[in-house]
């Protein structure tokens, strides 16, 4: 493939600039390989976070040619040939150094979400029974590797900085994962509306487009949660029905027959 030119952001929270470097591109190389080559040959102090190089740890998130992507999953031969490759840190989080941002805000957000609260175990050995179909629905959300690329691209955080009012797509996925779990007895819908700010999402699907795990964030997590919020807070008929009919949360249900899941 020959040489590639990388324009890498160098700096900290105070100041910074792009620096151009070149790297020898080989067959199957990814952007992270090129960044490592730059580190090894031209800029030993270049800071970048990585761990698995297999798209599984979610550490190497950055913006490549303006798009939030994992550096380890972006092949050089998939980028426009002969063009300079821009590598920038994520823009939604405070910059620490070069390509490394402080994503600690996400950990604080997660602590504010009511945790999974399973019903009493169905069996004396502490296990539950749940149907595979019901498990499949929330399984998609468990694929999340917490790369926070969706948080990075979401304009509510990126452009409007609503970090104190909106948890972002990653945690709406997490909310859907616990809220739709058939074993869960918690109710987070009022929080989803009031505390976690789901109303800020205007369903523009940027999060879905960047998710490296292919989670259908908007259609399968956010919109179903929005609909549950409508049930409880906006739809007068549903609100009336809920007054008459007691809410049936899975905790009160008997276990259904089906494939056994060990808890």
């Amino acid at each position: 493939m020959g040489q590639v030119t990388l324009k890498v952001w160098r700096g900290n929270s105070e100041s910074g600039q792009f620096q151009e470097y070149t790297a020898e591109a080989g067959e199957g190389m990814v952007v992270l390989d090129a960044v490592h080559q730059v580190q090894a040959t031209q800029a030993p102090d270049l800071a970048c976070r990585w761990n698995c190089k297999a798209g599984k740890c979610g550490s190497c998130s950055a913006e490549i040619n303006g798009k939030p992507r994992l550096m380890c999953m972006t092949r050089l031969d998939d980028l426009p040939p002969g063009e300079v490759i821009t590598v920038e840190p994520m823009r939604t989080f405070p910059l620490m150094k070069d390509l490394v941002t402080d994503v600690g805000w996400n950990y604080e957000v997660k602590k504010q979400i009511a945790p999974f609260a399973p019903r009493k175990a169905d069996h004396r050995d502490g296990t539950w029974k749940m149907h595979q179909d019901d498990a499949d629905r929330v399984q998609e959300f468990r694929k999340c590797i917490e790369c926070y690329l969706c948080q990075d691209v979401c304009h509510v955080l990126r452009d409007h900085h609503k970090h104190d009012q909106f948890v972002g797509p990653r945690f709406l996925v997490h909310l859907a994962q616990v809220e739709m779990n058939p074993l869960d007895t918690g109710d987070r819908i009022a929080d989803t509306k009031n505390k976690h700010g789901i109303g800020y999402c205007n369903i523009t699907k940027c999060c879905t487009n960047v998710c490296p795990e292919g989670i259908t964030i908007t259609d399968n997590a956010i919109i179903p949660l929005k609909e549950r919020v409508v049930d409880e807070h906006y739809d007068p008929v549903m609100m009336l029905l809920r007054l008459v009919l007691p809410k049936k949360k899975s905790g009160q249900r008997s276990a259904v027959s089906g494939q056994e899941t060990h808890g």
Partner: peptide
Amino acid sequence: HSLRHLVGGRKDCLSE
């Protein structure tokens, strides 16, 4: 999407 919710998506235990 609303229909998807109303016909079943609102339930956690769809298999029931």
